[in-house]
Design a binder for these strands. Structure first.
Lengths: 206, 206
DNA sequence: GTTCTTGTGTGACTTAGGTTACCGAATTTC
DNA sequence: GAAATTCGGTAACCTAAGTCACACAAGAAC
């Protein structure tokens, strides 16, 4: 697999080096890449597919945080790997996923010898940090209908204008209940923002 | 000022270097260190005092995120400074604050030449990332009374067992309303968790 | 002292959203 | 095909928490 188009900012030497020290791993749809309490031995670079990240509540609730896609790295796996800390979030593959696993013992050396790697790590943190802040915005300042709109917007952006999902799954992701989501979706449909079918929501793009 | 006890993990050489390239800056209580939209020219290391960080909502709401204290650095100032990105949060000094301002142009060099600096930066990110995730936990999974307990716990931990604050300020920090906070505080007092006086809440430590 | 300002307490009311309890329609399994 | 399962719609109800209105107490300003 050619990594250059996936990580356009990396120099050919860096890519060559990454391929040498890393190992390509494969996950099937539904596999859990990361579970709370787990320790990392590797930092993961996503080459293909999509990974959904959740925060787990104490009583089994879940809350959707964001997606990782081709060209992203898992910020947490980099931080926690470097510090040998346990994960506090859950990640599952929602498609088939190919990733490059970089053993943690190479992190220091990469950081030291490759400026682009260092920039990549910083940029990864910054993006995820901002993403978390946006999530906090939503839950702190907005009502359910606004959260739902924001949620769907992000789903459409990551997964395309037609997403296959049940109302129950949305309710779980937003830590709400199915009936509420159904009600609000109906209203959004009435306002011509979406079209609802069984297992499927389509964005109305005018 | 001797920095060694504030940053015990830094080598004497690193500290000497930081003092050379950095500049000690002073803020008075109430000063705003950082405002949304601002660009950073420096990364700030807190030497003395406390800084309160907020997320701003679109309609002027605020939401308390966390405190920075002696020995901490502002994760955002490091990321945003390095990437020349604008801030998305607000920071105000709640006491007199002394900080060491490190110009951004030194970041790369520090990262490259000082392992302890690199570890410090990673650790800073990790701590704040986890802190944000805890905040998300609270707002996503918990009701107002639980958020309030969590909020007070963090205040007590940072500011001591007796905090000077009005119900209105708490309501602002939690994006709630004064009456609700007063009601819930009464209940907490009835449960012997706190003692309420005008402008003041004291933790009951049994 | 009196007045003014700020902080707190409380009851009445409203509302978003969670819960319960159905029902029917679409799919899958047999 | 029939039966079972999954998904979505809807009405009635409940509750947390936001809002409104007002009263009162502690300090500050005069």
């Amino acid at each position: 697999m050619n990594l250059q188009p996936i990580f356009p900012r990396f120099s050919p030497e860096l890519i060559k080096h990454l391929v040498e020290i890393g190992q390509v791993v494969k996950f099937e749809e539904g596999d859990m890449l990361m579970r709370p309490g787990q320790y990392f031995k590797n930092s993961l670079l996503i080459l293909e597919g999509q990974v959904k990240l959740y925060r787990d509540g104490d009583n089994g609730e879940e809350f959707f945080l964001y997606y990782l896609e081709k060209g992203n790295a898992c910020a947490l796996s980099m931080i926690c790997a470097a510090k040998n800390e346990a994960s506090v979030i859950k990640a599952t593959a929602i498609t088939r996923v190919m990733a490059l696993a970089i053993p943690i013992q190479h992190m220091d050396e990469l950081m030291k010898n490759h400026v682009q790697w260092y920039y990549f790590v910083l940029e990864t943190y910054r993006k995820r940090f901002n993403e978390l802040l946006e999530v906090i915005d939503q839950v702190a300042f907005h009502s359910m209908d606004e959260k739902l709109e924001f949620y769907l917007k992000r789903q459409f952006e990551s997964l395309g204008n037609r997403i296959m999902i049940t109302h129950q799954q949305i309710a779980d992701d937003l830590n709400s209940s199915r009936e509420v989501i159904s009600r609000l979706l109906k209203k959004m449909e009435a306002r011509k923002r979406i079209v609802i079918s069984r297992n499927e929501i389509t964005r109305v793009t005018i």
